[in-house]
Design a protein around this nucleic acid. Sequence first.
DNA 1: TTCCTTGCTATTAATACTGTAGCAAAAGTA
DNA 2: TACTTTTGCTACAGTATTAATAGCAAGGAA
Lengths: 101, 101
Amino acid sequence: MSENKSARPIMVLLDILGKRWTLRIMWELRNGPFTFRALQESCDMLSPTTLNNRLNDLKKLEIIDHQPDGYQLTVKGLELAKIMIGLTKWADKEATLLARS
Amino acid sequence: MSENKSARPIMVLLDILGKRWTLRIMWELRNGPFTFRALQESCDMLSPTTLNNRLNDLKKLEIIDHQPDGYQLTVKGLELAKIMIGLTKWADKEATLLARS
DNA sequence: TTCCTTGCTATTAATACTGTAGCAAAAGTA
DNA sequence: TACTTTTGCTACAGTATTAATAGCAAGGAA
């Protein structure tokens, strides 16, 4: 109760990853660069407003950057994406469970 | 919503983990059971409405369950929480970056 | 020049979340 | 037993976030 939890790095990270679409965007970017519109399509046509907000969040954290050939994960971003592969393994293992929801 | 790529297990998982507070709740639960109200406090007093919604989401996926001594991660949930430890390591490594946002 | 594509912004409507109050059931206390 | 807490919520109104859609300016190709 006396510690300042919200200042801890993990809390800042969870805050951003917890915003809607952030995880999904990172997931889609795992395989090479995407243009703004291609990203939108691969994310089930999320609104450009939100996509832009998330891209800016991720740019600030240097998780992605915007190169001539599109938005892509940075080296730091790739490290995070690798961690997310564990989520895929879990999801595949629990596919039956996830299909029910 | 039932036959495109969003039906893939990982998409369902990312959908739920991407809702606000979900990751944080799982993070707080990593160390043993919490009562509803204790969880609320550890999550910076998030509203009971949202907490309840998230707990139900997580119960459906059998990531948590509600025992006499409180809400806690299931075996499946613990597996997910372990993956999240990777996030902490990343966050600590990038602490300077995260502090700026 | 005209036509695309790209990366957005603007606007309004819909949805989600917050903040607060409070209630019913269970558990603890005298 | 009766009283007091604690617990797990629900209700509701206000605020914030997101969706849906339209469209625009810049750059490149034809």
